[in-house]
Amino acid sequence: MGLLSKKDAKLITDPFADNNPITIQVLGICSALAITAELKASIVMAISVLFVMGVGNVVISLMRNIIPSKIRIIVQLIVVATLVIIVDQVLKAFAYELSKTLGAFIGLIITNCIIMGRFEAFALANGTWRSFLDGIGNAIGYGVILIIVGFFRELLGSGTLLGFKVLGDPIEKTGVYALGYENNGFMLLAPMALIVVGIIIWVQRTKNPALVEEQ
């Protein structure tokens, strides 16, 4: 990356893999469980969080020297809630269809612990540009896991991807269903999301033993 120094580039690439917010820091699990029953919702959530994290980290970083430390968490919460509400209102006025899709996520974005976590751990102590990169990096790391989980849950749970019946029709018994394959309804429930995240963590740690904590 020619544009970014090596240190800055790491802000983007680290959360993507070895310091992933979901699989390593175990933040943002709640939304990873709640909305990954279909791939489309995972993608919408990933993009929303990307936006809020990028802008939110910049705003907090700009304010970092004037925020009183006693009420900093409240200030962070207000900043993210204000951002999300304004975006929601603007979408409702000018992109109503899109806002209908996002409606259910508004609350989940505001309470997403990754956002608060990055404000607290990074934006409060770092400059604007680096905070922006950190926000983007963490949001991508979060989004990738969401999309992987959403992919497997929708494929194995409903036999569809983005709503398309990729495995055939389960009721008419076409495609793989003709061979006796059945959808696994359990994949649609939250516990299975946790198990999928667990498998991702397992794979990641097997590939990179440095991540495994010492006994």
Binding site: P68, I71, V75, I85
Partner: peptide
Amino acid sequence: TESNLYTVLFATVMVIIVGALLAFFA
């Protein structure tokens, strides 16, 4: 930024700004 007075003032100003902003958009 640690004094109580500053904290109270900061909170007041922030609430006014955020409130005005949201009211304007709404």
